[in-house]
Amino acid sequence: MSNIPSELKYTKSHEWVRIEGDGTATVGISDHAQTLLGDMVFVELPEPGAALEAGEECAVVESVKAASDVYTPLSGKVVAANELLEDAPETVNTDAYNDGWLFRIRLEDEAELKELLDAEAYAELVAEEDH
């Protein structure tokens, strides 16, 4: 069973989102996604300052057997990228929801938040995929 914290929001493409309350949101990939991909060997992140549109590919997480694009669930300007991952991509495996975050974005359109899944809906999605 994968770990799906209830305070986070999720996407169908397995990103998680934490609303930070200062107008920004943090994005990473779910525990389920990191398990499927396996040992992470490289993470490519968006440059701080980049302006993204919701649904745009903006990062790549790479294991030895797969490379997966990460799509930003929200539009806005990137305010930070997790530099720790440059030297320690395995953090995405060991701590997907905390130190393994990918990037932080300044929200542009609060309405986009409504499109996200809550933990319950995401858990259902994962359960379906497992079949």
């Binding site: 060997v41 490289f42 790479e62 294991s63 030895v64 057997k65 797969a66 490379a67 694009d69």
Partner: peptide, 12 residues
């Protein structure tokens, strides 16, 4: 670095 190659990365 096989994730660069066609058998993993396909159209990308």
């Amino acid at each position: 670095l096989q994730a660069r190659e066609q058998h993993i990365r396909r159209s990308k």
